[in-house]
């Protein structure tokens, strides 16, 4: 009985991670402006695994939580020596306030090598459409601007293809494990 149980356990441990399917409905290359003010194409990261997510820095609740969780994924990978070919990429949908300079000052605090992207609103809208992201500008009251928005996180492989989509409250260990299947 014990031997059979141990054999099952060993089999489970040695089972290769399941290959993540390619999502052919979402994604694609795009060009925006990076936090250094330079034109940036997603395809320039080909060869690296990308964790792509959207938000805005004036969002106090969900966005900082997502940034913190993505950062934790990156730091966990780094501790395991697996982060060299991994790049978190944050796209703002609030380019008016999230300028390149603001993103350059804001993102390094998370200590996760997060690349920040901004640009013309029309260009960001096009990227959002490619990835199925919805964002709607709203009056937050007292002159504040908020956004109704979707908050999915996209795991892209070395060819920029979407391999998995996660909710904002994703499991950090799950994403770490998924990234490692692509490395």
């Amino acid at each position: 009985m014990l031997i059979a149980g141990a054999a099952l356990l060993l089999a489970a441990c040695s089972e290769p991670a399941r290959e993540l399917p390619v999502n052919t409905r979402l994604g694609g290359d795009f060009t925006l402006t990076d936090y250094n003010g330079e034109r940036f194409s997603l395809s320039s990261l080909n060869g690296e695994v990308v964790i792509l997510f959207f938000g805005y820095t004036h969002c106090p609740d969900i966005c900082p939580a997502v940034l913190a969780r993505v950062s934790q994924v990156y730091r966990n990978l780094k501790e395991q020596g697996e982060a060299d070919q991994v790049r978190p990429v944050f796209v703002t949908f609030d380019p008016e306030r999230d300028t390149a300079q603001h993103l350059r000052e804001y993102l390094p605090w998370f200590k996760a090598d997060i690349l920040g992207l901004t640009g013309e609103l029309s260009a960001i809208e096009k990227v959002a459409e490619q990835y199925g992201v919805v964002f709607i500008k709203e009056d937050g009251g007292n002159g504040e601007v908020d956004f109704t928005h979707s908050d999915y996180i996209y795991l892209l492989d070395q060819q920029g293809r979407v391999r998995k989509v996660y909710p904002a409250d994703f499991n950090i260990d799950e994403v770490v494990a998924d990234v490692k299947t692509l490395l």
């Binding site: 969002c59 106090p60 609740d61 969900i62 919805v134 709607i136 709203e138 937050g140 009251g141 007292n142 504040e144 908020d146 956004f147 109704t148 928005h149 979707s150 908050d151 999915y152 909710p167 904002a168």
Partner: peptide
């Protein structure tokens, strides 16, 4: 400035804040 807010999720998974 401070405000009381609520983050809600609609049927399509979109988050929004309300005062």
């Amino acid at each position: 400035m401070t405000m009381l807010h609520d983050t809600g999720t609609d049927g399509e998974g979109r988050r929004s804040m309300s005062h």
